[in-house]
Write a protein that binds this DNA or RNA. Structure first.
Length: 210
DNA sequence: AAAACGATACACT
DNA sequence: GTGTATCGTTTTT
């Protein structure tokens, strides 16, 4: 008895519209080792050409190619020399908007998640942060481009338990400076208030020059 | 050179 | 138990 995935048409809108609606939904990944599922508690919208913080800002490249494709696929990228982060690609084919999956609660496969997250001090840290989330789920380079809207696929986006709309909060994105340093904060981060798995807010601090 | 970050060590409650 | 400053590592521009 499998649950239907989230409909692709639901995701074929600008990431900024999709992002708050994605809170509470579930990303599930199955590998030979087993299945881990995460209920999303924190996300961030990235718009395409108009968004200096977006990987798509400078046009299509081999790295961000998936972002320009149709909605409902996973954009996985490698960063900081050691981490992977995952986005749900939104909007119509040719338009690159996406939602970064920042944090969630592991609701299936906690033992497997724990084995992938040996440094986690508590269960709430399994997917508390964008690269921790991909690690707990076992997502990496091979999953870039995976279709999330196909039943029985090893990588699926599923409806979650109902969310109280009153718990949705919004604020500035994390780790992204304002538009070219002009100080404008983009309130495109969304989270569920009161969730212990939401990553701590860390204002953007320019790294010290070496 | 900077980047859509995490592990660690240590401070505090 | 929870918070936070410092620094590692490599892709991309």
């Amino acid at each position: 008895m499998e649950t239907a995935t989230i409909d692709r048409a639901f995701l074929a809108r600008p990431g900024l519209e999709v992002a708050p609606d994605l809170l509470g939904s579930v990303l599930r990944h199955t590998t030979p080792e087993g299945t881990v599922a995460v209920r999303l508690t924190e996300v961030e919208a990235y718009q395409g050409a108009d968004d200096p913080g977006s990987h798509a800002f400078r046009g299509r490249t081999p790295r961000n190619d998936v972002m320009f494709g149709p909605a409902g696929h996973l954009y996985v990228y490698f960063t900081y020399g050691m981490h992977f982060c995952a986005n749900v690609v939104c909007d119509v084919d040719g338009t690159a908007t996406a939602v970064l999956l920042r944090a969630g609660e592991v609701i299936e496969g906690p033992a497997l998640a724990a084995s992938r997250r040996l440094s986690a001090r508590t269960a709430r840290e399994y997917a508390r942060g964008p690269a921790r989330l991909t690690s707990a789920l076992g997502l990496g380079r091979p999953d870039n481009g995976a279709d999330l809207c196909v039943a029985d696929s090893p990588t699926q986006l599923l409806p979650g338990p109902p969310v109280d709309g009153g718990r949705v909060r919004t604020g500035p994105r994390v780790g992204v400076s304002g538009a070219g340093g002009d100080g404008v904060a983009f309130p495109w981060r969304f989270w569920l208030d009161g969730e212990p798995t939401v990553s701590p807010y860390r204002p953007h601090v320019p790294k010290r020059r070496k």
